[in-house]
Nucleic acid binder design. Structure first.
Length: 816
RNA sequence: GCGGAUGUGGUGAAAUUGGUAUACACGCCAGACUUAGGAUCUGGUGCCGCAAGGCGUGGAGGUUCAAGUCCUCUCAUCCGCACCA
């Protein structure tokens, strides 16, 4: 009985394919599980991270199928994006052909790994049908005011004449031609994700328990909510005149209103509109303009290295003291946070302090420690007592904040304000291989939405992709069209959408079935049955962007009336990375292990077993060739020892009391593994412990020869291992049980009942020996036995206390 | 700097509620079978010690009859964010 994985795996893969074994049912009265792994980009080959991801989801999907759930376990391909275009440029190939060839290859890999994905629901996001529905949603969002267009600063390569994504900018230069990047003000489409900031933050609470804490915290930080006071700083009359009366004031935001009396200067971002005005109207010396230009050109990383600034020689009036305070430009003030202007309190803010020291600006303390002296050699940022603060003197600085805000509000000088780090999501890309934004520019009507019956607006097949400029823009005919409103000549929007848009709703599309696949993205009935995703599995690298965008889309779709829940993913498991030689597998490091090679040498079951056995799924997994061999040997043993099993179509009935000690022990181990299996699949997801339990059971079985015990064991073990090593388990199950055992297994409590047990005996908490006692022994009997066994350690000692922990141990506390 | 995690044998890791620390596997050692073994099977393997025994979950304290687990402090590593006003 040799273990020939090649034949076994092929047989069952064909069997599953032929029988459509993994298609979900359309019967919505059944209990359901939606098990989802993050879909891959079709890069060409699966890597071990994918294998890990899908081994986890497949184990869960197969388990719940056995438990008679209606299981949706779909897969698709996140197939738009730059790598396809880059490959096209490099190999002079068609991105579409490249993409779909890769998909074909990877589909074969999925099959070879035995993953139980639904075939019928597979799609690629570059499919025109998917684009059609997505463009429909985009139009809805625009019409609802959730999408808008605005000029924004983008990375521009002057040589290639194209916009670059942040990832394409390497050390401030173009990744292709090494030309320094400039920021260019361009029109860009945005989703109003900021409108959902509060809800995205607040409903994180509802995900507690279901999502890893780390991800919740990362999202919380990313949204970055902070409360404070916003108020206007008015120019003095001379400054106002200098600015040609164009500006009265600018507004600032602070989270520390308690430090208001300590404001000694204010600072604007180099990109602030007042600064821009002063430059454009020659109100600044050439030297100052040059300094400001230099700040603008410095990357945000370099800006952090040293603070720099320049005075604008204008001043504003402090709202409370009415003193004049100078206005500076400072490189640490960010245009895209708050209003791009800050009040500076050097005495109580480290940045403001450093800047004031460097430029010799006034420093005024207004908070003193509750005990000790006022600090002068550094910023005092802790809570203290207010002084130099007018009528607020003597107050606790923290407690005074509310009152100061109230004072500003009462006197109409400012208001309580909340700021977020989360910015609106810029979704337009000047790229070919993406979903076209379905808008039309008409000279008479302006920006017009394409009519939904004309969707999809598909990509042209004959675009020339050189990597320079936007192929859609340069295409000779594609962009010319008629205005959907007035039918005059018009042009299409040539920007395509960020690929994160596709992955923000693909999990909803999987809910659609063959019955309505072509007609609609999904039906409300399908969505309300399948959603939310019961278990989502993927890498931590998506903790922010994808997972935040998907949550945003869900809330938008709710508000558009497509669905009626708030969160898409009830439970999230973030798997750890796969490492080799202590480092993440990567081509550049040359430490990759090719899944295909492992399948070829050991088979899919071995690959799956190793990956689930080597570490719990949330932890990093160190690849180990020897341990892979170990996994292979286990499967081989498991298969070969099945010769001890006798064919049957129900689980054998065994009279437990008639068995030998070894036989009983084997049964205990088998049923322990079963109990653990249910816990692991449902709750803990620590497949490594389940596999260890099955190994223990097999080791225990080996110590006896009772064929009923063997048969019962294999009935159970091949059932609980099927989600992990499905091929060999199907083979065993088919050989001996006619596949009748792949169903829920009953735990027989009688197996765990024994007439004697071993108890540890410890003295003062230190384990000394052990005793065997009958299970119905009284505490007195147990203590007597324990004292006998431990007499050696009890000589000349006074017994203070005796503790019996049922079924565990006896502890005797002694003195002397 | 802020936030999140993780520290257990030579290695990957177990220990579900505070209750016999190191299950399972890798590696290593020994033996068996073999022309041979990088195959298979059997046994051994936390550290110190001849032994009795002692010591052991990053470190230091604490609570408890009992701590890997709870509390306080601390060190190290990894990850995320970061001049966010």
């Amino acid at each position: 009985m040799d273990y020939n994985f090649k034949i076994i795996e092929k047989t069952w893969q064909d069997f599953w394919a032929k029988n459509d074994s993994f298609e979900p049912s359309e019967d919505f009265t059944k209990k359901k599980k939606y098990i989802l792994s993050m879909f891959p980009f079709p890069s060409g080959r699966l890597h071990m991270g994918h294998v890990r991801n899908y081994s986890i989801s497949d184990a869960l999907a197969r388990y719940y199928r056995q438990q008679n759930f209606n299981v949706l376990h779909p897969i698709g391909f996140d197939s738009f994006g730059m790598p396809a275009e880059n490959a096209a440029i490099k190999n002079n190939a068609d991105p579409k052909e490249w993409t779909y060839n890769n998909i074909d290859y990877m589909r074969g890999e999925f099959k070879a790994l035995g993953f139980s994905f639904s075939k019928n629901r597979e799609f690629a996001t570059s499919d025109e049908l998917y684009t059609k529905f997505e463009q429909g949603f985009i139009i809805d969002m625009y019409e609802k005011g959730l999408m808008y267009s605005q000029k924004g600063l983008l990375n521009w390569c002057p040589n290639d004449q194209t916009v670059l994504a942040n990832e394409q900018v390497i050390d401030g230069c173009c990744w292709r031609c090494d030309t320094p990047i400039v920021k260019k003000d361009m029109n860009q489409y945005y989703f109003k994700i900021s409108e959902y900031s509060d809800e995205l933050l607040d409903s994180l609470k509802n995900l507690e328990g279901g999502w890893p804490k780390q991800v919740l915290t990362m999202q919380e930080n990313w949204i970055g909510k902070s409360n404070g006071l916003a108020f206007d700083l008015f120019f003095g009359s001379a400054s106002k005149e200098k600015l040609n009366n164009t500006f009265d004031s600018f507004d600032v935001f602070t989270t520390r209103p308690d430090t208001i009396y300590g404001v000694t200067y204010t600072a604007l971002a180099p990109e602030h509109k007042i600064v821009t005005y002063m430059i454009e109207n020659s109100l600044l010396s050439d030297e100052v303009v040059a300094k400001i230009d230099a700040m603008k050109k410095t990357s945000s990383i370099d800006r952090q290295k040293e603070k720099s600034g320049v005075a604008l020689n204008i001043s504003v009036i402090h709202p409370l003291t009415k003193k004049e305070i100078p206005v500076w430009v400072a490189n640490f003030v960010l245009m895209d946070y708050g209003s791009g202007a800050v009040m500076a309190v050097p005495a109580h803010d480290e940045r403001d302090f450093d800047f004031a020291k460097k430029y010799n600006l006034n420093i005024k303390s207004v908070i003193k420690p509750f005990a000790g002296d006022v600090k002068v050699d550094s910023a005092f940022t802790e809570v203290g007592e207010l002084f130099n603060s007018g009528s607020f003197d003597g107050q606790n600085s923290q407690e005074s904040q509310k009152e100061i805000i109230k004072y500003f509000e009462d006197s109409k000088m400012g208001q309580k304000t909340t700021n977020y780090k989360l910015k609106d999501w810029g979704v337009s890309r000047q790229r070919y291989w993406g979903a076209p934004i379905p808008f039309v520019h008409c000279d008479s009507c302006g920006l017009v939405m394409e009519k939904k019956e004309n969707l999809p607006i598909a990509l042209p097949k004959d675009a020339e992709i050189t990597g320079e400029g936007n192929p859609l823009e340069r295409h000779p005919t594609w962009k010319y069209c008629k205005c959907p409103k007035c039918s005059k000549d018009a042009t299409r929007e040539t920007d395509t959408m960020d690929t994160f848009v596709e992955s923000s709703w693909y999990f909803l599309r999987f809910c659609a079935s063959e019955s309505n696949w072509k007609d609609e993205a999904f039906s409300k009935e399908q969505i309300s049955y399948w959603m939310g995703v019961d278990q989502y599995i993927g890498g931590i690298e998506h903790a922010i962007l994808h997972l935040l965008y998907a949550r945003f889309f869900t809330k938008v779709f709710r508000d558009l009336g497509y669905l009626d829940f708030d969160e898409p993913f009830d439970n999230l498991l973030t798997q750890g990375m796969v490492l080799k030689d202590g480092a993440k597998m990567s081509k550049s490091k040359g430490n990759t292990v090719d899944p295909d090679a492992i399948i070829e040498k050991y088979g899919a079951d071995t690959a799956r077993l190793f990956i689930l056995f080597a570490a719990p799924p949330t932890q990093e997994l160190e690849w180990n060739d020897n341990a892979v061999e170990g996994a292979y040997r286990f499967i081989k043993r498991f298969y070969e020892r099945s010769v001890n099993v006798v064919k049957c179509n129900t689980i054998p009935k065994i009279e437990h009391s008639t068995l030998s000690k070894e036989e009983k022990f084997a049964r205990v181990k088998v049923y322990e593994a079963l109990v653990r299996a249910n816990d692991v699949y449902n709750e803990r997801h620590t497949f490594n412990t389940l596999i260890a339990g099955v190994m223990e059971a097999l080791n225990a079985l080996n110590l006896q020869q009772n064929s009923d015990v063997w048969s019962e064991a294999y009935w159970i073990l091949s059932s609980i291992m099927e989600p992990i090593i499905p091929h060999v388990c199907y083979e065993i199950s088919s050989n001996y049980f006619g596949l009748a055992n792949l169903k829920p297994q009953v735990v027989l409590d009688e197996v765990f009942v024994c007439d004697s047990m071993m108890l540890g005996v410890s003295i003062n908490g230190k384990r000394r020996t052990e005793i065997e006692v009958s299970t119905d022994a009284s505490n007195e009997e147990i203590i007597t036995l324990a004292k006998e066994a431990a007499s050696k350690w009890l000589e000349d000692k006074a017994i203070v206390k005796e503790i019996v922990v049922p079924k565990k141990l006896v502890n005797i506390v002694v003195k002397g």
